[in-house]
């Protein structure tokens, strides 16, 4: 059995932290992920539990945004699972068909579980900030297209 390095951390907290970074890994473009994190995993020999596998996830939506659920269509997703040299399992799930991206996400998931929470957080904060910045830039462009419509008075009887 693997070394239980996180016995003192309540399970929910670990899950919460993994939940956050797995989302950040999936949303960060591969090039940026490699730039910030590749060296973290470069030194290790990982055991492949599931070589990168491409597949589909059916996307669910709700009528009117909040009503009856329905299946809107599928998206491509690639997943991968690894075991680190010290026995931690890591999983990666990323949208698209990039196998390298899924593999790096899985390796990082394993490695980050072995770091202290503050070390891991520092790394994730950097990536997360970059994501928020990109989204904000996109939205700021759209914000320049915000309009106020005035209702014109019709006819001469005003």
């Amino acid at each position: 059995m693997p070394e239980q390095h996180k016995k003192d951390v309540p399970l929910d907290e670990t899950a919460q932290r993994r939940q956050r970074w797995l989302g950040v890994f999936a949303k960060t473009p591969l090039a940026a992920l490699e730039q910030h994190c590749a060296e973290l995993v470069a030194e290790h020999q990982f055991h492949m539990l599931r070589t990168p596998e491409r597949g589909l996830v059916m996307v669910r939506a709700r009528a009117g945004g909040t009503g009856t659920q329905f299946n809107a269509g599928e998206m491509t997703v690639t997943r991968c699972s690894v075991r680190s040299p010290s026995g931690t399992t890591g999983h990666g799930y990323v949208a698209g068909r990039n196998q390298k991206h899924a593999e790096l996400a899985a390796k990082l998931d394993a490695v980050l579980q072995e770091l202290t929470p503050s070390q891991a957080d520092a790394l994730i904060d950097t990536l997360d900030d970059a994501l928020s910045e990109a989204a904000t830039r996109r939205q700021q462009k759209s914000a320049t297209t915000r309009v106020d419509f005035y209702t014109m008075v019709r006819g001469d009887d005003a």
């Binding site: 597949g55 669910r60 989204a135 996109r138």
Partner: peptide, 27 residues
Amino acid sequence: LPRFGYSAPLNVENMRARRRISATFKD
């Protein structure tokens, strides 16, 4: 391709909208 499963229902309340118009209310 194999299907891994179904997603959680999209939370469109959190959409980062780049376009949003209404023809029923101006404000």
